[in-house]
Simulated scan of single mutants.
Amino acid sequence: MIYIIGAGAIGQALAVLLQNTGKEVVLVKSRQVQETQRDFQAIHVHVSGQLSQAAVKVASLATISFESGLILVTAKSFANSTIAAKLRGANQPVILLQNGLNIEQPFIDQHIRQLYRCVLLVTAQFNADGTVRFKPVSACPVGLVQGEQGMLDELVGQLDNPWFRFRSEQNIQPLIWKKVIANCVFNSICPLLDIDNGIFYKNEFALRMARNVIHECLAVAERQGVALSAQEVEDSLLSISRMSDGQFISTLQDIRNHRPTEIATLNAEIVSLAGDLPVPYTKLLGELTALKSQLNLL
């Protein structure tokens, strides 16, 4: 059994693609499932020019009892304290498919024995008709946070499929930081410009803004013991920008739909870790995005 906690675009896409490879899947919604809702939800995913669909079993986080199997967390990271409390002391492996720094801490605090992080190199968004548009960028690396390293390849084998690819990674922290730095760019500049991810490979001025954020974040990463080059981070950012051209970053989707965002685990977390290091671009862009999010919640 594979439980997916979080029924957003990523969670729904993954649920369909796994179920259509023969896996038994339960999509666990963070919010209460209404009594009028059926036990199964029909989900349609557009991927690689094809329509993939499945009737996926759904449940509520508040009432579900997790049996043996694998638990994936695709919900927004601000829900992690609630999710971790529900999973307290779980024996099942838990894989976090989320953005941000230090998002694993609530699960460590709740004594999750087998904890992993996945760096998402895909994009997904809901279409106006409720279907999901999914675009892969590259195979998503999965690495150990705490527990038994020997299970990693087996878990990745359960998840990997022709549309949503996964791979094992022995040293996940540099890749987490590389993606976080890219997300500090995408999740602040794109919402503020109200534009899709393709802006950075199309517009030199936007790319110069991105380079300022990358430079600041790299200094913070180095202080945390993570060595990355500006070129490899920029190359990753441009690759994501090209491959997800036309897709809207999750923070912009959330703002448009009057939902809370994850900016606190991105730019704001970088600022918190920076200490006396100057990070004015990262700070200002993050604060403006947080303000825009707050105003759209009113």
Rank of each mutant, 00 (worst) to 15 (best):
S60C: 05
L96M: 13
G100M: 13
T289R: 10
F66P: 12
T131Q: 03
L273P: 04
N161S: 06
A75M: 11
P191L: 00
T21Q: 15
I10N: 11
L120K: 08
S30P: 07
C140E: 13
G147V: 01
D160I: 15
I176H: 05
V73D: 07
A128T: 05
V185S: 09
E234P: 01
T265D: 02
L18Y: 00
R259P: 05
E104F: 14
V132D: 09
S236P: 02
N161L: 08
V26K: 01
N102S: 14
G225C: 11
P106G: 01
Y3N: 06
L61I: 08
S241D: 03
S229Y: 05
L87R: 09
S244E: 09
L18D: 01
E67H: 06
G8W: 14
R211M: 11
V33M: 06
E216V: 03
I176W: 03
I255W: 03
A221I: 03
A210W: 14
P278I: 04
I172A: 11
I71L: 10
L115Q: 00
N91W: 03
N80M: 09
I214W: 04
E216F: 06
L238T: 11
A139H: 02
A84G: 08
T82R: 07
L72W: 06
Q146L: 04
Q125R: 10
E169D: 13
F40M: 13
T123C: 15
I240V: 09
L297W: 13
G89T: 07
D196V: 02
K29Y: 01
C118N: 14
R242I: 15
A85R: 15
L152D: 09
L207K: 14
